[in-house]
């Protein structure tokens, strides 16, 4: 199961867990499962996040594949100028 790193604000909302295991093969499954298993993350996930998968940042693409050994990091939703 991929391990997902959460940034500090997210970790704080689930009792300081900065890393969780989530059964997911795609970005969509990841976000859905997180919301189900950790309802406290929902407000932030609903506001939007970016996700780094093996160092590459994704915003929205549901079917981005995630391997069991992928490094998955949730990030605040990126903005640009």
């Amino acid at each position: 199961m991929p391990r997902v790193k959460l940034w500090g604000s997210l970790a704080a909302s689930i009792d300081g867990q900065s890393e969780v295991e989530v059964r997911a093969r795609t970005l969509r499954e990841l976000l859905d499962t997180l919301k189900q298993e950790y309802p406290a993350l929902r407000p932030q996930l609903d506001r939007g996040v970016s996700v780094a998968i093996d160092g590459v940042i994704y915003n929205d693409d549901w079917f981005t594949p995630i391997r069991d050994d992928s490094e998955v990091v949730l990030l605040a939703r990126l903005k640009g100028g």
Partner: peptide, 9 residues
């Protein structure tokens, strides 16, 4: 490991 989380390529 970047300060914001992921590992840099």
């Amino acid at each position: 490991r970047a300060s914001y989380g992921p590992t840099f390529p």
